[in-house]
Write a protein that binds this DNA or RNA. Structure first.
Lengths: 170, 170
DNA sequence: ACTTCTTGGTTGAGCCTTCAATCATAGACT
DNA sequence: AGTCTATGATTGAAGGCTCAACCAAGAAGT
C-alpha cells in the first residue's frame, strides 16, 4: 500500500534517453540485417548460437535459453529457418519428446555472409560512438541489470511454488 | 573494400551483455504494461506524448516524431486507441491533409492508472539495480548513442539529395 | 489554369511475437 | 500395471510492426 515512487526529473531524462538509444541501436542493427540478409536479428541469433555449439547442434530448449527466447518463439523461428534450408530438425533418440536443431552448411554460409554487414552495423551503432571507458561502463551496467532481472524469474517461480504449497497445505 | 573489423572478445562480451540487458528491461516493462494495462509500451508512449502536449492534442506527424515512430505505425496505433475510446482524431481545418489526435478523458484516466504500475516496473528494471554513478553514466552513454545515430538519418538524406543532384547533373 | 512535385496520412499484406491450448512422452507415486 | 503430474515441444489465433502502395491536398513552376 506504499505510495508510488515517481521518477525524478533526472531519472525521467535518463529513462527516455535510454529508450531512444535502445530503439535506435536496435533499429539500426535489425534494419541492416533485414535489408541485407533477409532475416530479423532474433533469427541471426539462432544461427549464431547453433554455429557455436558442438556439432553445430542443440536441443530446442537449450537453444531457446541461449537466445533468451520462449520455446514458442523458437519453434516458429526454427520452422522458418528450416524452410530456408538453414537449419534441420530431428527428434532425440533417447528422449523422444526432445528434438535437436542443427545448422546446415548453407545456414553456416548464410551466417558468414550476414556477419560481415552485421558487425559493421554494430560498430556504427555502438562502439564507434563510445569511448573505451563508456564501453566498459556499459558492459558493467548491462551485467548489473541482467543479474538483477535474471534471478527475478527464478525468485518468482520459487515464490509461486511456495504459495502453491501453502495453498495446498491450507 | 576494407577488411571486416571484427569485434574483440571484450566488445563481443559487452554487446551480448547489452542485448541481454535490453531484452530483459523491455520484457519486464512491456510485460507489466501488457498484463496490467492491456497495452504495449509503444501505445503507452503515445498516451504520454499526448498528455504532455498543450490541449492534450498533437498533429499526427508531431506525435510520430515524439514517439520515435513511423507514420504508418502511429496510424495503426491511433486507430486502435481510437477504438478503445482513449484518443480521438479530427482533420486540421487549415491544412486538410493533416489530422489532430487528442487524448480523451478516458484516455487520460487510463494513462494515470497505467502509470502506477509502470513506474514501479521501470524502477525494478533499472533504477533499483544501478548506483547513482551508473545511472549518470547510462544517461550519458544513451545520449551519445542517440546523437551519433540521429544525425545519421539527416546525413544519409543529405547524402541522397546530393547524389540525386549529381545524377541529374551528370 | 495546369502539370508536377511534395507532404501528411492511411491502408493492406506479410511477417514476427505472444498467449493459451494441445500433444506426446517421461517420471513418480500407489 | 495404472494414474497423475511434469516436461519438451508444437500449433493457431490475435495483435503489432514494416514495407510498399496509395490517396488527397497543398506548393511550385510553367
Amino acid at each position: 500500500m506504499s505510495r508510488t515512487r515517481w521518477l525524478s526529473d533526472t531519472e525521467q531524462g535518463v529513462w527516455r534517453e535510454f529508450l531512444a538509444a535502445v530503439d535506435m541501436v536496435r533499429g539500426h542493427v535489425d534494419g541492416q540485417l533485414q535489408r541485407d540478409a533477409g532475416m530479423p536479428h532474433t533469427y541471426y541469433e539462432v544461427l549464431v548460437a547453433l554455429s557455436e555449439a558442438p556439432g553445430r547442434t542443440l536441443r530446442m530448449s537449450d537453444l531457446a535459453e541461449r537466445c533468451r527466447s520462449s520455446r514458442s518463439r523458437l519453434s516458429h523461428a526454427v520452422a522458418r529457418l528450416e524452410k530456408s534450408g538453414w537449419v534441420t530438425r530431428r527428434t532425440c533418440p533417447t528422449d523422444k519428446r526432445g528434438s535437436f536443431a542443427s545448422l546446415t552448411e548453407e545456414g553456416f554460409a548464410a551466417l558468414e555472409t550476414a556477419a560481415l554487414g552485421h558487425v559493421e552495423a554494430v560498430r556504427e551503432a555502438l562502439f564507434d560512438a563510445l569511448s573505451p571507458d563508456q564501453v566498459r561502463a556499459l558492459g558493467e551496467i548491462s551485467a548489473t541489470i541482467r543479474n538483477k532481472l535474471t534471478p527475478r524469474c527464478a525468485a518468482a517461480m520459487l515464490d509461486e511454488d511456495s504459495t502453491e504449497r501453502a495453498a495446498e497445505a491450507g
